[in-house]
Nucleic acid binder design. Structure first.
Length: 764
DNA sequence: TGCTCACTTGTTTTT
DNA sequence: CAAGTGAGCA
């Protein structure tokens, strides 16, 4: 162990060996946070803590898995396996299954994912005959989710004046009733949503002091990773488990808090000190990942935020190259420019050391296309996870129904898949009977006559057949291991036959996914058996898989591929070279956050996360136009580009950004970009005339306010000259007003579609 | 009941 | 551009 301690710097060491009370480790980007956590756990084991009495909570399954591996490397796999290590959601779902009866659930409860929740909300809105334009399901879902994260049950919601008034003001007074119905339906179905896993844990601990006492005594030391991303419910769980004893160590970086949309509360880390008196703070400020230029650029950016824990992150690596700013005409060109640079970079490092990061998943397509055309191998992370694909989820729904027949969402998904002549009308009848009698759909199905379901004989027969199908699976599930019952289910339900007859490309893909799923189950069984479990049931598999939204399928990790992912997904990772694309107003920062200073700060932190992923090279790219929602729109370079100190940037060709600090009057005309659009001018006007940087951030860019221009003097067939592409002929027009663009056949550069507004065409 | 086709509409990040 | 919805028809 001493040998391992030597691998740590002084502040890391102090954080590892400190056991005299609550500890807060502020870990700057790339400062060896994971190393501290793993060694701390190893240290605890060395001090005699039993592995199964250490609780380590992480943010993603992947983080947990990797940390476990690293610990196994130090203390051996046998010991590492006994640790309670995982995400909040997975750890507490385990505890909830054990204690389910206390809460009126059974241990085989289903976990509803976000889609299940949304579907349930949709059907409740429909049943209540509300307008889904007013009661927008997504909005209701996030309201309920926020309430749950703040530990407001539906009963508390009804009594919360503030919330009720809010809803009244927003003309959605019935949210409280939707919430109440939603919760009852979940209970009825024996289901918990993601937020329930935390909420119910809190209720369990609040209402059953003996249970809380049991776990509080059981866990002798608690560690929490990514503490800046915990929400109130998570914070309270931790607090309850550690009450009165200081055996707690939380690690995080307030500058990397990027999950407030999910209820994460940055105050948890900012106020940790006040909440846990006697707590010791450790700061890890030396960055081991990146060159000085990257660290300094990131520092200059994050300095523009207000609330943060003071720290000075520094690097002692070489100065390194400056951050490259890349500007392109369009999203299309951007993707190709990035692909070209990736190709070039290949001379310095393998593809696997490079990543292209973007704000939204939708941006991946065009990048993929560019990579494919250049024959660059890539791997896209995120988007739909394996378990969320329709064909996989349908099969999983059968599994869910077998384990918990009251699962309403699984029932609805599966009852007519493959089609067996039970349509919407019949399902609606079942639902309405279930609602009137307050029972599950499955219960109604058991005795159609008892619940007065008005179906004709033919339909009744089909329903009975479905019931028998599920019953027969349920029976066999008692004895069979997971892989065998799973195979029986996909065969006898008719899914295999259905998918096998579809010979289209995507049909084949679906069939392969099905095989993949079955293979996954078989592997799961095998691993569990090797760990000493005799019989591995379908329920075991399901309990695990419901929380595995992580991207950890295919084993092609070792091949040399460029990584494409969202910035969120990149948190915690590092790459030799990073390309951050789409740095434009309304995209990064997102349009959703433009009027909200707090949200803008979060977007800035997100950008900070993106930059600090880079070890040696970082490229920041934006396009001047982008295809969005079915049409091309013009873009303004992101305000964040102006937040980075110029001396760390290397800008080239057309773009030279306005300097945030210098005043307009001082700027010489020559220092302006050669290529200036009216929009850019509008943006420049907005730069503060004197000192206060704040203005830059607080003034929203007046995008649409730019005056409409008249381009009517350009005609089809006219010969024009363009500054970059030379001479050409106008073939056609598209769009109106400021978005009017012309398709031009250039003599030397081929066809281009250009905004008249930008193009500054000259009539010949 | 179930399928197809035309139409509308909406936009972020994820355990 | 995508997904989701609603009408029309077998």
């Amino acid at each position: 162990m001493e040998k391992y301690l030597e691998e740590l710097n002084e502040s890391q060491q102090k954080a590892v060996v400190y056991l005299d009370g609550p500890a807060l480790v502020i870990a700057g980007a790339g400062s060896g946070k994971t190393r501290v956590l793993t060694y701390k756990i190893a240290w605890l084991l060395k001090q005699g803590f039993a592995p199964h009495r250490i609780l380590a909570l992480t943010f993603t399954n992947k983080a947990a898995r990797e940390m476990k591996e690293r610990i196994a490397g130090i203390v051996g796999e046998e010991t590492a396996r006994r640790l309670w290590m995982g995400t909040f959601h997975s750890i507490f779902s385990r505890i909830l299954r054990r204690e389910a009866e206390r809460l009126g659930f059974t241990s085989n409860f289903t976990i509803y994912d976000a889609t299940d929740s949304k579907n349930l909300i949709k059907s409740i809105i429909k049943e209540m005959q509300l307008d889904d334009k007013v009661y927008r399901p997504g909005m209701i879902q996030s309201r309920i989710s926020n309430a749950k994260n703040a530990l407001i049950t539906y009963k508390a919601y009804e009594q919360n004046k503030q919330l009720i008034e809010d809803d009244l003001r927003n003309k959605i007074p019935l949210v409280r009733d939707i919430y109440a119905r939603y919760q009852n339906r979940c209970q009825q179905a024996g289901a918990m949503d993601f937020d329930d896993l935390l909420l119910q844990t809190n209720l369990l601990f609040r209402d059953h002091p003996d249970v809380l006492g049991k776990y509080r005594d059981y866990f002798q030391y608690v560690l929490v990773d990514e503490y800046q991303d915990t929400n109130f419910a998570q914070h309270l769980i931790v607090k309850r488990l550690c009450e009165g004893r200081g055996n707690l160590c939380v690690v995080g970086d307030d500058a990397q808090s990027i999950y407030s949309f999910r209820g994460a509360n940055i105050d948890n880390i900012l106020q940790f000190k006040q909440l846990y008196p006697g707590c010791q703070i450790f700061k890890l400020e030396r960055n081991y990942r990146s060159t000085q230029n990257i660290v300094n650029a990131a520092n200059s950016l994050i300095r523009k935020n207000t609330a943060q824990i003071p720290k000075q992150v520094y690097s002692e690596k070489e100065e390194g190259s400056k951050l490259q700013v890349l500007s392109s005409y369009s999203d299309y060109e951007e993707a190709y420019a990035v692909a070209a640079r990736v190709h070039e970079m290949r001379r310095q490092m393998p593809y696997a050391d490079m990543a292209v990061l973007y704000r939204t998943n939708a941006q991946s397509r065009i990048l993929e296309e560019a990579m494919r055309k250049r024959n660059i191998p890539y791997r896209v992370y995120g988007g739909l996870s394996f378990y969320q694909r329709k064909e996989v989820k349908d099969v999983i729904s059968y599994f869910r129904l077998v384990i918990n027949p009251h699962d309403e969402e699984a029932f609805k998904r599966v009852i007519n898949y493959p089609t067996r002549g039970i349509g919407d009308t019949t399902v609606s009848k079942l639902v309405s009977a279930a609602t009137t009698y307050g029972v599950s759909l499955w219960t109604v199905l058991q005795s159609l006559s008892d619940y007065a379901v008005p179906v004709n004989a033919g339909t009744a027969k089909k329903l009975a057949a479905f019931r028998e199908l599920i019953d027969s699976f349920r029976e066999r599930n008692q004895e069979l291991p997971a892989d065998e019952i799973a195979t029986a289910i996909v065969k006898e339900s008719g899914i295999v036959a259905l998918l096998a007859q579809d010979h289209s490309t995507e049909g084949i893909g679906k069939f392969e996914n099905l095989q993949e799923l079955l293979k996954g189950i078989a592997e799961f069984c095998q691993i569990r058996q090797e760990e000493g479990n005799t019989q591995v049931s379908l329920g075991d598999f399901l309990a695990e898989v419901s929380l595995l939204t992580d991207q950890d399928q295919e084993g092609d990790e070792n091949t040399d591929k460029v990584t494409l992912m969202t910035v969120h997904a990149a948190k915690g990772l590092e790459f030799g070279a990073v390309f951050v694309v789409g740095l434009e107003e309304e995209l990064f920062p997102s349009a959703m956050s433009k009027d909200n200073p707090r949200a803008i700060e979060e977007e800035r932190r997100l950008f900070y996360v993106a930059i600090t992923r880079a070890e040696r090279h970082c490229t920041l790219s934006f396009a001047r136009s982008r295809f969005k929602n079915g049409q091309t729109t013009m873009c303004i370079p992101s305000r964040f580009l102006r937040d980075i100190d110029l001396k760390y940037l290397e800008t080239e060709d057309g773009y030279r950004r306005p300097e945030a600090d210098s005043s307009v009057s001082e700027r010489k005309p020559e220092s302006r970009p050669a290529f200036t659009s009216p929009l850019q001018q509008a943006q420049m006007r907005e730069t503060p005339s004197a000192g206060p940087r704040k203005l830059t951030r607080m003034t929203a860019a007046p995008v649409s306010s730019a005056a409409e221009q008249d381009f009517s003097d350009f005609q089809i067939g006219m010969r024009v000259r363009h500054g970059r592409f030379g001479e050409g002929v106008i073939l056609s027009f598209d769009g109106d007003g400021n978005n009017r663009k012309a398709l031009i056949e250039f003599d030397n550069s081929g066809q281009k579609q250009l905004f008249l507004k930008f193009a500054r065409l000259e009539k010949m």
